[in-house]
Amino acid sequence: MSTRSDRISADERREQILDAAVAVFGEFGYAGTSTDRVARAAGISQPYVVRLFGTKEQLFIETLRHTLERLLATFRAALPVDAEEASVEQRLGEAYLRLVEDRGVLLTLLHGFMLGSDPGIGPVARDGFLQVFRMLRDEAGLAPEQIHRFLADGMLINTLLATGIGVDAATDRDAADLMECTFGERVGEVLARASA
């Protein structure tokens, strides 16, 4: 029997469930995930997940918010103190690549954006994307053309990483060329990170 001091707080349990949900929603998508699957991944009971989050839709919404908060925190931590070190875009891009080494983060974000027309999930996805835009504009100080390039390149990178096209680069010349024109000399490093 565990003592009271062995128990984790409700906030810690909530974070544990959200972290498990990022992995599960990332792997199975919204349609392929159940609250039971998330509960098993978190090592707790399904009724507890439902008690904390309600429906699967609300669990996904909270998971998407959790992932977006992580993304924004990662970007904020990468803002340069000394502009001589690297450009803001380079720092943000590097931070993003480190973050999406966790495939669950990458795929949860993509699943959320793909559900943009859903009446419950769509507003959260759109608001999250706009939060990223505002952070790039207001906090990172990027100009409109820099924001456009950063977001466009980011979506291309997301697509390449999510589809696993880099895996095909070893045997498909077109896949290799696409990876090369996207990542340049860093293609090997990106492929190593994506497969880690």
Rank of each mutant, 00 (worst) to 15 (best):
R134Q: 14
A125E: 04
F129G: 15
F133E: 09
D138E: 15
Q131A: 15
D127E: 15
L106S: 03
T108Y: 08
Q146E: 13
L72I: 14
R137V: 13
P80Q: 10
G141H: 11
L110A: 08
R65M: 04
D118W: 06
L110P: 03
P123M: 09
T74S: 13
R126W: 07
R103P: 00
H148V: 03
A140G: 10
A86G: 01
Y96I: 10
R65N: 08
P119W: 09
L72E: 15
T74H: 13
T67P: 00
G93M: 05
V124N: 01
A73Q: 11
S117G: 11
A78N: 02
E94K: 14
L97K: 06
S117L: 12
E145P: 00
P80Y: 07
L107W: 07
R76D: 13
A77K: 14
G120Y: 07
E62W: 06
I147Y: 01
A125W: 06
E139S: 03
A140I: 15
P80K: 02
D102Q: 13
F150V: 04
R126Y: 07
I61H: 01
L130K: 10
D102V: 11
D127M: 05
L79W: 02
F150D: 00
R149G: 04
M114F: 06
V105Y: 04
P80A: 10
L99V: 12
L72V: 14
R134M: 09
L130F: 14
V100F: 01
E69T: 08
H66C: 02
E69G: 05
L109K: 00
D118T: 04
A125R: 03
F150Y: 13
L130Q: 13
F75L: 13
L107Y: 13
R134P: 05
V132P: 11
L130Y: 08
G122P: 10
R126H: 07
V124M: 11
Q131C: 12
I61V: 15
E101I: 12
V105H: 05
E145C: 00
A95V: 07
H111L: 00
L110F: 02
R70I: 06
Q90Y: 01
L130I: 12
G120T: 12
G120N: 11
L142W: 10
A77T: 11
D102E: 14
G122C: 03
G104S: 12
L64P: 05
I61D: 00
V88S: 08
F150Q: 00
L64E: 04
A83H: 01
A95L: 06
A77N: 15
A78F: 09
R149F: 07
A73R: 15
L115R: 04
L142D: 08
